[in-house]
Amino acid sequence: MILLILLKQFFKLQRSVCVLLFFAVAGVCIPVYAQESNAVQLKGTGRVSTLTITYELQIASAKKRGHAESYNGSIKTIFIQDGKVRNRLVALMRIQSLFYFQSAIQGADTIISVKETGKDRIVNRFSNTEWDDLNRKYRNKRLAFFSDSILILNYTCYRAVVSLSDGKEITVFYTTAIQNEMLQLTEPAFAGIPGVVLQYTYQNKEATVVYKATNVTTDAIDPAVFQLPAAK
């Protein structure tokens, strides 16, 4: 109100113009403030039960390969809510989701992989044993933590290196401001990391592949995101 009066007096503007200016300024400022507030709120939250992380896949290679480039720029979104996780990879080449529903009974989790692309949708159902078998390379991994850090989405992220028994290494940057153990269930490479990973990198002889978080939010997720196709 005061702002309106000041505007009117200073610029000798009509009342309607002042009202429009006020709402225009408010319309810009409020979302920015809300976004910053959200980030501040996440930083101080710690453990969250609802989490959505969006990663962008970047591939750097001296030699361009079409198959690889079809994944370059793709997006991986991880939805976590109420003990359920959906890991969805959207690339030019394919769209595929991995569902992980934690069970109260140990060893009875529901793990389903669904290839959404193509005329024939392929659904793979894993038992816990099969899931462990799929991720056996991470069984004897070693974790090394470092003090250097970078800023990702206004989160201070510390470096860690996951070393596998065959010599492969994944470099991760994680933040301790957000905690959610469900993420580690779908990404066994992150098991033992004391926080949410916002960037991870793998490098071999030919290329460097980086997953970097572009968005983190704790907004409620539509339960339909976790719905599975019914069996035939």
């Binding site: 890991n87 990879l89 394919r94 799929l134 071999n204 592949v209």
Partner: peptide, 15 residues
């Protein structure tokens, strides 16, 4: 034994 969700599986497959 391979999943496109896994960073190592994906990288080793496409390169």
């Amino acid at each position: 034994t391979k999943s496109p969700h896994d960073i190592i599986d994906l990288t080793e497959t496409i390169f």
